[in-house]
Design a protein around this nucleic acid. Structure first.
Length: 271
DNA sequence: ATGGGCACCTGGCTGC
DNA sequence: TGCAGCCAGGTGCCCA
């Protein structure tokens, strides 16, 4: 799915069309997502004005006065802003009709995404409350990474996918950040030195920021709010490049499996 | 507390 | 052509 850059690209794409607009109707076409779409969502949001469109880790938060819509795009979801009346596609799960004659439509073939409404503080929601700090905010640095890895015997690459320790990084950017930090994905997390943690934290920030700048990474079907793909795929150093020459040293990129996910690395550049 | 593995889904591709 | 098998951007939950 969408990792942080794709979610942030989506947020930036929908925000100008949503902020300050009123929801005139909510249509749920298929409630079956990872959890059923919150019952009563239609009545709860009808007539409400969007106060803000925020992101927390890979979650999008649509803030209304009485509550918040917490959305996740799972592996295959996208949110698009379209003219009202645009024909529905397969796997269009729900849409918010706006007073601007536009609609916000959620499409998610694999249904790993979610769409939940809460009237409580979303930061206290069970899905959000235990999440690690934002990687692009000031609290995330080498010292933080060093601190949270000290007791961890797990390899650094799967640790990067643990949202309680690090957020926003998914399977693509985990391999990419380790390449940029010149660290082997199999290294035990606790074995990283302070200097390596500093390099890795900086690499994570750089790769996420660079990906956001070009609209994220489209491998197969990700599109932003306007339907355009992201262009960071052209900048990937290792992900999905098994057997191809390293873009830095020409050594063939290697692939193996960690925790049922593919990992890619350059055996020469990453020591 | 930590870590490993499974589960949830659909679709696209490969190879027989 | 058809079909089986494998793979895919995430993450909550159960068990050791």
């Amino acid at each position: 799915m969408p990792e942080l850059p794709e979610v942030e690209t989506t947020r930036r794409g929908i925000e100008p069309h949503l902020s300050g607009r009123r929801v005139t109707a909510v249509h749920v076409h298929d409630r079956r997502l990872r959890w059923p779409v919150t019952p009563g969502l239609e009545a709860a949001l009808r007539g409400q004005r969007v106060q803000a469109v925020q992101r927390r880790a890979k979650y999008l938060l649509l803030r209304f006065k009485p509550g918040t819509l917490i959305m996740h795009l799972g592996m295959s979801g996208n949110l698009r802003v379209l003219p009202s009346g645009t024909a529905l596609l397969k796997h269009d799960h729900l849409e918010l009709q706006l007073d601007s004659k536009l609609v916000l439509r959620l499409n998610d073939p694999r249904r790993f995404g979610s769409c939940l409404y809460t009237t409580d503080d979303p930061a206290c929601h069970p899905l959000l409350r235990d999440l690690a700090p934002e990687p692009l905010e000031p609290g995330f640095d080498g010292a933080y990474l060093h601190r949270v890895t000290r007791r961890r015997r797990v390899a650094i690459k799967p640790l990067l996918l643990n949202g309680r320790l690090i957020t926003g990084v998914g399977n693509i950017y985990a391999s990419e950040a380790l390449f940029r930090a010149r660290i082997r994905p199999r290294r035990a997390a606790r074995s990283l030195t302070s200097a390596e943690c500093a390099r890795l934290a900086a690499a994570i920030r750089r790769v996420l920021t660079a990906a956001i700048r070009v609209g994220g990474t489209t491998l197969r079907d990700y599109v932003g709010a306007d339907g355009d793909p992201g262009y960071f795929r052209q900048k990937l150093y290792v992900y999905e490049r098994a057997g191809l020459p390293c873009r830095r040293c020409r050594t063939p990129i290697r692939q193996f499996t960690q925790g049922q996910r593919s990992t890619y690395f350059c055996p020469q550049c990453q020591q």
